[in-house]
Amino acid sequence: MIRAPAQYWLLIVMWIRSVLAYPASFVLMLVSSTLVNLTDFVAVLIMFSHITAFGGFSLGEMALLYATSSTALGMADLLTGSIERVGERIRTGAFDAYLIRPVPAFLQAAADGFALRRLGRPLQAGTVLVFALSKVDIDWTVARGIMLAVSLVTGTVIFAALFVLGASFQFVAIDSAELANSVTYGGQALTQFPLTVFGKEIVRAVTFVVPLAFVNYYPVLYVLGKPAPLGLPSWIGLLSPLVAAVMVALSSLAWRAGLRRYRSTGS
């Protein structure tokens, strides 16, 4: 448990080195990945050439939402995205190879084929964040600054937990990778926008069922000093570390249950 970070690092360094064996190819991949992601934000810019506010959010505020959501998903995808291939590994029998090593299967599954090019999305998100902070006029307090920084971490953790939950489900239904993707990648598309535009039902769902609203929406509302929907308190964003902790606990239980099921059914 204590050694987990070192073991994870060992595994990803191995993959990074194998990628960096072809530096030119890597740089090209990274640049193209960042550019493709940037065009994603261009859609928002175009939208704001026709309107001045969307769901009560100005362009800068939208950019802040977009950047936080994109950072969280990008980092989670970078760190744990490989875990979605667990079903494939079970099917081919490669999963057994994880279980004969003295490193937790979870770390091996998360690090396997670590793709540094996925850094493209967080890089793009960072660019948008700089843009956002230059546009929005935030009444900065210490609490708001901390909230913004913390939300990038907790958002990453919430998305990562969702990746792990999805992967755990593949122990039961091997071909369910797409189901999990609809929640993670689909969820990210949702969290780029002020959630209220989607209607109350969606807001309830992403608050109480799949807590995507805690990835960035509630924290950003707090930072911007905007009221929360559904009559929720405006400080609800402060609960995001708690939500992240609960998600980690849930996903860890799910992973263990999945692994136990695997070990007692075989492939």
Binding site: D96, L99, I100, R263, S264, G266
Partner: peptide, 11 residues
């Protein structure tokens, strides 16, 4: 199956 049990892969 026996080998997998001896490695701990299977319970």
């Amino acid at each position: 199956t026996t080998i997998k049990m001896l490695t701990g892969i299977l319970v």
